[in-house]
């Protein structure tokens, strides 16, 4: 019997609560979530001419954060968004997950620009944001608990995945006793458990040391292979983008706009050896050039 909570893309059936076209209500979502893990029907994400301006406040002048961002993440695709610090990448993710609304432009899920996003797009932050008063298991089930999934079922679904996330034996440990890498895996488990079709990751490994980071990158590639989702990753680590994505968008300096999209011509998941593939090396050179604004000039 397959473990609860895991779903394989091969057997994925269109979920009953697909939001293509129609708006789905929060109760409908809860009902579908409560019914058990739904196989991921993938979501297509489209951004068209998105801008974001924070209005002037007191002595602070108005701030243009995003000037013109357009991008497409196809169903089941892994897309990275790479750009210099402060180019509005995090704001863009906040807009995608519905935490903020764009000043102008269109955000569409499966072609529907009016589809609700808040609560339906999984969003993982750079900080693990674990609740210190909850155990590993208690933190992992938070998303299910907020959707009113019965406690025993939520636990069972978390426990079914705990080994794959390298957390077995730590179910009842508190975050204070975990390493940074483990905490980030708990955060990812919490992000993935509610089975949202679209996941946005905001520099999820940015705060970790290089060795832990590279281990987690390969591991996440494997996890997303067996439990495929439409994924948008924000990073400023060129190798991370090259290792994990199908496609890479480059963003300009603030106010950010999407400059170019580059295809990574290798199958996923990849190991670090892929980074020494001549095609990837060439791609890295292009990326570095785009990030610098002009080829050969290093971004300050």
């Amino acid at each position: 019997m397959p473990a609860q909570g895991s779903s394989s893309p091969a057997t994925a059936e269109p979920a009953s609560y697909r939001w293509g076209g129609a708006r789905i209500s929060q109760p409908a979502l809860r009902a579908s979530q409560a019914a058990g893990p739904t196989a991921s029907g993938f979501t297509r994400l489209e951004l068209n001419g998105v801008t974001k301006t924070y209005p002037a406040r007191g002595r602070r002048p108005a701030l243009d954060v995003i000037s013109d961002a357009s991008l497409l993440v196809s169903s089941g695709e892994f897309v990275s968004l790479i750009g210099p610090s402060g180019c509005g990448k995090s704001t863009l993710l906040n807009i995608v997950s519905g935490l903020e609304e764009p000043t102008s432009g269109v955000v569409a899920l499966d072609g529907d620009p009016r589809a609700p996003r808040l609560g339906l797009v999984a969003h993982m932050h750079q900080r693990d944001l674990l609740l210190p008063w909850r155990t590993v298991l208690g933190n992992a089930v938070l998303g299910l608990e907020l959707r009113h999934v019965a406690a025993t079922e939520a636990r069972a679904r978390a426990l079914a995945l705990i080994a794959r996330f390298g957390l077995d034996g730590f179910e009842d440990a508190y975050p204070a006793h975990l390493s940074g890498g483990m905490r980030q895996r708990v955060a990812l488990l919490r992000t993935m458990l509610p089975q949202q079709d679209l996941i946005v990751l905001d520099e999820p490994f940015g705060a970790l040391d290089a060795i832990t980071r590279s281990g987690l990158q390969e591991w996440l590639g494997d996890v997303l292979e067996t439990d495929r989702r439409t994924t948008l990753l924000v990073t400023h680590d060129v190798d991370e983008a090259l290792l994990m994505s199908d496609r890479i968008y480059v963003m300009s300096k603030r106010p950010g706009s999407t400059v170019q999209s580059l295809q990574v011509p290798l199958a996923r998941p990849r190991t670090r050896e892929a980074l020494s593939d001549p095609r990837v090396i060439d791609l890295r050179r292009q990326l570095m050039g785009l990030l610098a604004g002009k080829p050969g000039v290093v971004e300050a």
Partner: peptide, 20 residues
């Protein structure tokens, strides 16, 4: 940021109050 995390998980105001 924790409040934002709760909101992306679909939490209501009341749930944010109770659980955070």
């Amino acid at each position: 940021e924790m409040i934002a995390m709760f909101r992306t998980l679909g939490a209501s105001k009341r749930q944010i109050f109770q659980k955070l």
